[in-house]
Design a binder for these strands. Sequence first.
DNA 1: TTCTCATATGCATTATTACGCATATAAGAA
DNA 2: TTCTTATATGCGTAATAATGCATATGAGAA
Lengths: 115, 115
Amino acid sequence: MDDYIKIFKALSDMTRLKIVWLLTNIDEKICVSEIVEVLGERQYNVSRHLKILKDAGMIREVKEGKWVYYYLLPINDKFGHFIQSAISVIPESAMSQEKAKCERLLDQRKHYDTK
Amino acid sequence: MDDYIKIFKALSDMTRLKIVWLLTNIDEKICVSEIVEVLGERQYNVSRHLKILKDAGMIREVKEGKWVYYYLLPINDKFGHFIQSAISVIPESAMSQEKAKCERLLDQRKHYDTK
DNA sequence: TTCTCATATGCATTATTACGCATATAAGAA
DNA sequence: TTCTTATATGCGTAATAATGCATATGAGAA
């Protein structure tokens, strides 16, 4: 039961729900500083929220040079599947500015990467 | 966004998740004193948790004499549908004692009702 | 090595939530 | 009406969680 509680708790904070929503709807890994810019939150808080999501088993990170990229963990059970589905149907209207900003950032990153 | 947070917050407490799980898996309305007995929680806390679930739009009550029965609200949107599905697949093993106790109580109630 | 950028974390403070106790409300029973 | 049972709630306290600030860690750049 505690594992389920942990997941619901992880999602019951605006910043964290936004992070998970972005990871779900952007379908790409994002690094901490990008989340900071997209959400307009402090860096140390974003780091902490990411830790909570990681402890709940929802995300994982990969290090690449100075950066730490976070991505959604693919689900392995029915419960996680339904939870991810629930998040994926949260309408974009609730997150429109954030999504636009995020897409702009990711686009910049691609241009930078290919230079 | 706040409505989604409210639902996740409502579910991120052991007592409340157990209540919702019971209402989901028993498929019958339950009154406050039955929940109190099944979960072994104090009456005033159960009442408060029920209020939080009600404010999140997950349950509703009907009054019958001295008793107040609570039941799951049928879902009207995709998000709620997935959340209810997630709860319904939480394995019975996590709630076995409670479910058994609850079934025993409901059975007693039926016998009492038909007297 | 030293500097800078990206990320994480220890510690104190504030804010939120859960709880206990007492009591209010509400309805049927006596 | 008074008594009892069922449920809800006000108020204070305890437990949890989120935040701010400073700083640590870690990696590439100079």
